[in-house]
Design a binder for these strands. Structure first.
Length: 157
DNA sequence: AGGTTTTGACCCTGA
DNA sequence: CTCAGGGTCAAAACC
């Protein structure tokens, strides 16, 4: 049923499947695009980064930018699929667009599900806009994994 | 001081 | 009717 009706390749790193008008699946495959990370910060940061890397598979997971600005409002470990899912919502209140990003610890691929359509133009492609900052929302998912799923979100309800 | 992100708890839906 | 899973909200901490 969910047959991709559209396929786009981005920089050989991203493959986007448009399943529906409102749903978009993105698979991030880190094959040749090796990002350098020789960052030296505090000891704690290094330690956490190391743990995060180890947990995430030694590869940094960064949410691909799509020109929109998102605000994270939740994260959960979906044990059914053994993946961590983060919930994002468009910064624009007028816009009811939502976004779910899920990834598997130790797996460099991401799956992004767009829910709903934006009611405004892309801030990044706005010629005379005010913001136009599409590179602002960089979510390092690997660190999030460390914080959110270190203990598979007990969620003892 | 303001805004954003993170974490935990609560609520709702489906099986 | 009960249990489990998923999603959202709210408060606290950090930048």
């Amino acid at each position: 049923m969910h047959a991709p009706i559209f396929l786009v390749e981005l920089k050989c790193s991203f493959i986007i499947y448009v399943i529906d008008e409102l749903y978009l699946y993105v698979l991030v495959c880190r094959g040749s695009g090796e990002g350098e990370r020789g960052h030296h910060g505090d000891e704690e940061e290094q330690q956490q980064a190391a743990w995060a890397e180890e947990a995430a598979g030694v590869q940094p997971l960064v949410m691909p930018e799509d020109g929109y600005q998102w605000k994270k409002y939740g994260q959960k470990f979906i044990k059914n699929i053994q993946k961590i899912r983060s919930y994002f919502r468009c910064r624009d209140k007028r816009c009811g667009a939502k976004k779910k990003v899920e990834w598997q610890p130790g797996d460099p691929s991401l799956r992004i599900v767009y829910d709903g359509a934006h009611q405004h133009g892309s801030p990044a492609s706005n010629g005379g806009g005010q913001d136009g900052d599409g590179a602002a929302n960089r979510y390092d998912l690997s660190t999030q994994y460390f914080g959110g799923a270190g203990a598979p979100t007990p969620q003892t309800r």
